[in-house]
């Protein structure tokens, strides 16, 4: 059974315990062992990278060094954490000067970054280590071909030379549940989360563009794999009523929620009631 160092970051446990619960259930069903990492907290987010590049390198270098101690890959369900860890790992592997500077700090805490493990996003690990075929074999309640739009999130896809993620991975994982993947023109576009602190109206407009694009393409549901994207696409729909007087009613599910339901896991166990736009209609699309 593959074992992973589970790095939750701060947003999922605080804002999306339904994401956390669903991924733990999925792991159990698929035979993946997630071990919560000791002594870690937040990755600092792109905001930390913006104001304090070196601090960001040390914080994430430390997390990577802790994970290296037991040799298991580090896995996270958050695109923000994934982007930070992947980018820092990439940079420290290629820049020996910065690696030396970071390790000088880490040695004070008996740690050293060596770059010996991989950084994995939850969905990439499910795709690579379990795979769509195995998932299909385990599914007991496949979806009935209902149309789902995927929002990948910028920091999962780009920069591709750093993230090494391919959109086909999540596409195939959604299809494996029996759902249809709905393509839409703005699939690559940002949800707007990162600029909430500096320009909220613009952030809201970006979320709106995205949701409209999904709806217009005929999506009945959307799926995300990041808490920040979840905020923008699910929670923000409530805000859109206020700021634009528009109601979209597009339920947004975290991918492991969809997968868990198809694996026969109950809706309460994946916290379906916590989704902001009511998502329980998805239960009517489960066969078997």
């Amino acid at each position: 059974m593959p074992v992973y160092n589970l790095y939750m970051g701060c947003s999922v446990p605080a804002n999306y315990p339904n994401y956390e619960a669903a991924m733990m259930k999925v792991a159990e069903a698929l035979g993946m062992e997630f071990e919560y990492m000791p002594d870690v907290a937040c990755c600092g987010s792109p905001n930390l990278r913006a104001i304090d590049y070196f601090g960001w390198l040390v914080v994430n270098g430390r997390t990577l060094a802790i994970a290296e101690k037991n040799g298991h890959d580090i896995l996270t369900p958050c695109n923000g954490c994934f982007g930070s860890l992947k980018d820092v790992q990439h940079h420290l592997k290629h820049d020996s000067e910065d690696r030396a500077r970071v390790n000088k700090e880490l040695r004070k805490h008996d740690l050293e970054f060596k770059g010996t493990i991989k950084v994995r996003h939850l969905v990439e690990a499910i795709y690579t280590d379990i795979g769509p075929d195995e998932i299909r074999r385990k599914i007991t309640k496949p979806l009935d071909g209902v149309g789902i739009a995927i929002h990948y999130g910028c920091h999962l896809l780009r920069p591709a030379d750093v993230t090494e993620f391919k959109p086909e991975m999540l596409e195939e994982l959604v299809r494996a549940t029996g759902a249809k993947v709905v393509e839409y023109p703005l699939w690559k576009q940002c949800c707007g989360a990162t600029i909430l602190p500096v320009n909220e109206p613009l952030a809201i407009r970006l979320a709106r563009d995205k949701i409209r694009s999904m709806k217009e393409a005929g999506a009945e549901y959307a799926t995300v794999v990041c808490p920040a994207c979840g905020n923008q696409l699910d929670l923000q729909q409530l805000g859109l009523k206020e700021s634009y007087g528009e109601v979209y009613d597009l339920p947004v599910l975290l991918y492991p929620q969809i997968l868990a339901l198809a694996l026969g896991i109950g809706e309460d166990a994946v916290g379906l009631r916590m989704n902001r736009v009511a998502a329980d209609s998805i239960l009517g699309h489960l066969k078997g």
């Binding site: 446990p13 919560y36 000791p38 870690v40 907290a41 304090d52």
Partner: peptide
């Protein structure tokens, strides 16, 4: 409480 959570490390660094 989130298992393993400790904010001492990041605060000391930053």
């Amino acid at each position: 409480a989130v298992p393993g959570l400790s904010t001492d490390g990041i605060r000391a660094i930053l």
